[in-house]
Design a protein around this nucleic acid. Structure first.
Length: 826
RNA sequence: GCCGAAGUGGCGAAAUGGCAGACGCGGAGCACUCAAAAUGCUUUUCCGAAAGGAGUGCGGGUUCAAGUCCCGCCUUCGGCACCA
């Protein structure tokens, strides 16, 4: 210890080496130990994908998550702050193919490297709660959950046109298609008819949407909006149209039943079964035209479909439908602007009041009939549809009604005839979870010629992934697991006859949809998670992660939580009570990437400036939600501040335990106003402001040491101890070293930060400002208890004030004693 | 096209409707030093020598008082995008 106290130069690397082994012994962040009386708090950082060593983005996320976690520990909470690895997935498989390795080796090497980096980065993780999703002990429970879902009818297989990435050679969920491109490799996504496994997210669409209201204020508004848009609920009506030559009517979905009298034709999705059926009823010429058109549609991809200047295309089917509201006979068309998997795959077209229908009508010269007078005129003359509110015309009983009233009336009329009803629709589709790749959780289903789909019995879980040795992992459109013959061929658990395992693996988003529950009992072999621990700890109090997961991961985790709630496994319906989305770390205005050549290596930064300086820089750069441009910030300045703070601890000469009450009043006031301001700043995620407040206190402390108080003053020790404890949230090494220099045992993180002593903050005098017409003219010191009259009198006695008033007449005087006088003139 | 967020010094940024620019970077100066680095201190929105004036994207409005609230624009970023 004396050696330590003699050291007067701040050497960040020596400090890192000194404390890391001490913390390994001390384990200050272990949670869930029996009999711990502290209140519980669950703080969770999104777990990383082990694609290499940690990068600058991780450094930001974990620095900020650590501020929050360490804050609550300091506040006396039993904080659970676990970490793990989201270790299944394509990058491992692609890297393995490229280098001819087993994805397993690559993955676990990277995990070891990231784990070592996290330790050095001083993350306050509970190292007894680590999970790795590619471990059989973990993915066994993916399979168990899959079967729970299956038994509830929430996991099912269907054949449909799915998103297909020709480069990854696998299917993609809707959520993984970004602007028509594969989110992973940016290839153009095509459609392919395949039988695939789905989770029935749409059963939960209403709850997933409505429950977002309960997160209002605790989740970023942006994320709530994105989720709402993604679910995309719309309200309208289903309307039945009889079709000539067909016994069953066709149902269409519309949000505008009020415009039913303006429906001049009907359109069905070209790639729907319905279109094929209708075409088969038509003449050979129509059939040929339809077949040609369908081929053309199938060849187009989403990029072409999404082109804004795209011409409307379609073929007339030569079949007629009857408008139920007026008996009118309208032609039916097949076109690709109607989607097969939204609504019923068929629409009534009202060209006068819908942009797309208008364009289609113009292209094929179909009638356009105005039924809502919006005051803009007739769409036929305007050359554009009118989509707003207005008064119904040409609409029989609906004439004269407003849009809303007409919608209600139309539904009433349809209901009376049994030809329609109100209905809603969602943009959200069921979640396609099967993947034709190796490195994932095997789907625990056996296909038997006799018995069909047979779930793997619970006592035979996990279905272990066979060794990659001897398997061809290269993408070829079917799962590499198909090549593991000894693995694939099994006896049917039901009838005992030869059968085959399902060879697809699960989307890795399944793994991350419930991992926050696995941390509660990470090693349990008889249940997915402890229900008792879930009652004690869950839901997650504070979740921290990137906005890139605003839709996918969060929606799926919310869905899983609701299902688990309904199955009786958890007693809450939302997994993450509070959410913080940190921004990205950029370099010169753009995301760091090798191809851009603007990659900043975290390890280089740590070697140059030390861990604490990097962490502090992340916290101080600005609001956590904002992006950090590394070119705009200065880790060297952070290091400089830390050295300045550290030196104050070195200068303190009083003994630990000295009575602070005898200390310098001015410095004590600075310390306690810091204590008053710091916690609210951290709790509202204004970490940059929190750091600024510590800097102010260090400045005051420096002045105290060098000035009137002197190094022996008790207030100097008090301030230095507060600085050490406060900066432990941002710079744990420096803080621990200061704490030791101040004569304390290791464990500054657990030392606790005292409450502000309000009695030290009572002010006897404040500065009053005097404005004339809202402009500052003078200020002077007054007693806090000054009366309004006295304040007025003193204000009017000021020379600057009188000069500003000049010869103008005073109209009004606003007084907010003791701080403000505003004199308004005429 | 639709929805949403944001525009404040040379830069990153602060600011319950009440002193705009806290804190820091960068700049300038001083002290220490033979000198430099390091450190400490002072100063730093703009115009002006000063007195003073101007100032939070632009234009209006509410208010004794607006970066903050309201209306209309502009720009940037993000999300959705043939969803009937």
């Amino acid at each position: 210890m004396s050696e330590l106290q003699n050291q007067s130069e701040y050497d960040v690397f020596a400090i890192q080496d000194r404390w890391l082994p001490v913390w390994d012994e001390l384990r200050p962040f272990n949670s869930g130990i029996d009999g711990d009386p502290r209140p519980k708090k669950y703080v969770l950082d999104m777990f990383p994908y082990p694609s290499g060593d940690l990068h600058m983005g991780h450094a930001e996320a974990y620095a900020l998550g650590d501020v929050i976690s360490r804050y609550w520990v300091q506040k006396g909470f039993n904080v659970m702050h676990p970490i793990g690895w989201d270790s299944f997935g394509l990058p491992a498989e692609n890297a393995a193919i490229k280098r001819g390795l087993d994805p397993k080796g690559w993955t676990y090497d990277n995990i070891a490297q990231q784990k070592a980096s996290m330790r050095r980065y001083a993350c306050s993780f509970d190292w007894d709660r680590v999970i790795v999703t590619s471990d059989p002990i973990y993915y066994r429970w993916n399979q168990w959950l899959f079967l729970e879902f299956y038994n509830k009818g929430l996991a099912y297989r269907k054949n449909s046109n799915v998103n297909w990435c020709p480069s990854c050679q696998t299917v993609l969920a809707n959520e993984q298609v970004v602007a028509g491109l594969c989110e992973r490799c940016d290839s153009v996504v095509t459609k392919k008819a395949l039988t695939q496994w789905y989770f029935k997210v749409t059963d939960y669409a209403d709850r997933l949407l409505d429950d977002l209201d309960t997160l209002e204020g605790n989740w970023p508004a942006k994320v709530l909006t994105m989720q709402r848009n993604w679910i995309g609920r719309s309200a309208g009506a289903e309307v039945e149209f009889q079709v000539e030559g067909r016994s069953e009517p066709i149902t269409v979905y519309t949000t505008r039943p009020d415009t039913l009298f303006g429906a001049t034709f009907m359109v069905v999705a070209a790639d729907s079964d319905l279109a094929a059926e209708l075409a088969s009823m038509a003449t050979p010429a129509v059939r040929t035209a339809f077949q040609e058109y369908l081929e053309q549609v199938k060849k187009s991809n989403d990029i072409e479909r999404l082109a804004t200047d795209r011409k409307k295309t379609g073929v007339e089917l030569g079949v007629y439908a009857i408008n139920p509201i007026n008996g009118e006979r309208i032609p039916m068309w097949a076109a690709d602007y109607v989607l097969a998997d939204y609504g019923t795959g068929a629409i009534m077209a009202v060209p006068a009041h819908d942009q797309r229908d208008f364009e289609f009508a113009k292209t094929f010269d179909l009638p356009i009939r105005m039924v809502v007078d919006t005051g803009e005129g007739d769409p036929n003359e305007l050359g554009a549809p009118t989509v707003g509110d207005g008064v119904l015309v040409n609409s029989g009983e609906l004439n004269g009604l407003s849009k809303d009233a007409a919608i209600a009336k139309a539904i009433e009329l349809l209901l009376a005839q049994g030809k329609g009803k109100s209905a809603k629709n969602f943009r959200l589709r069921d979640w396609l979870i099967s993947r034709q790749r190796y490195w994932g959780t095997p789907i625990p289903i056996i296909h038997c010629d006799n018995c069909g789909e047979v779930p793997v019995p619970a006592d035979q879980l996990p279905v272990q992934l066979p060794s990659a040795e001897g398997l061809d992992l290269k993408p070829k459109g079917t799962s590499p697991l198909g090549g593991a013959e000894a693995w694939v061929n099994v006896d049917c658990p039901k009838c005992g006859k030869p059968a085959k395992r399902d060879t697809d693996t699960m989307d890795t988003f399944v793994d991350s949809s419930w991992y926050f529950l696995r941390y509660l009992s990470p090693n349990s072999t008889d249940e997915a998670f402890s229900q008792q621990a879930a009652r004690d700890w869950a839901p997650v109090d504070q979740y921290v992660g990137g906005v890139t997961h605003a839709i996918l991961h969060l929606l799926y985790a919310r869905f899983f939580t609701k299902v688990l709630h309904d199955l009786g496994y958890v007693d809450f319906e939302e997994p993450f009570t509070r959410l913080l989305n940190q921004g990205m770390v950029l370099m010169n205005g753009s995301a760091m990437s090798k191809s851009r050549g603007n990659l900043v290596a975290l390890s280089d930064q740590l070697d140059e400036h030390g861990v604490d300086a990097i962490r502090l820089t992340m916290a101080f750069a600005g609001p956590p939600e904002d992006d950090i441009d590394w070119a705009d910030v200065s880790p060297a300045a952070s290091a400089k501040f830390l050295a300045r703070a550290w030196r104050t601890a070195n200068d303190v000469t009083s003994a630990p335990g000295v009575d602070f009450n005898a200390g310098n009043a001015e410095l004590r006031k600075a310390t306690h106003s810091f204590l008053r301001d710091f916690a609210p700043a951290i709790e509202s995620f204004k970490f940059n402001v929190g750091v600024a407040k510590v800097m102010e206190l260090v400045n005051a402390l420096r002045k105290g040491i060098d000035g009137d108080a002197g190094p022996a003053d008790p207030a100097v020790r008090e301030a230095a101890e507060v600085v050490a404890k406060a900066i432990s949230l941002f710079a744990p090494y420096t803080a621990e070293d200061m704490w030791a220099k101040l004569g304390h045992q290791p464990g500054v993180a657990l030392a606790g930060l005292q409450q502000a002593d309000e009695s030290l903050l009572v002010q006897s005098a404040v500065v009053a400002v005097v404005q004339v017409d809202g402009k500052l003219r003078d200020k002077f010191e007054v007693s806090v208890s000054i009366s309004e009259d006295e304040l007025r009198e003193k204000a009017f006695a000021l020379e600057n004030v009188n000069r500003a008033i000049g010869d103008k007449q005073v109209a009004n005087v606003i007084i907010r004693a003791p701080k403000l006088v505003n004199i308004a003139t005429k």
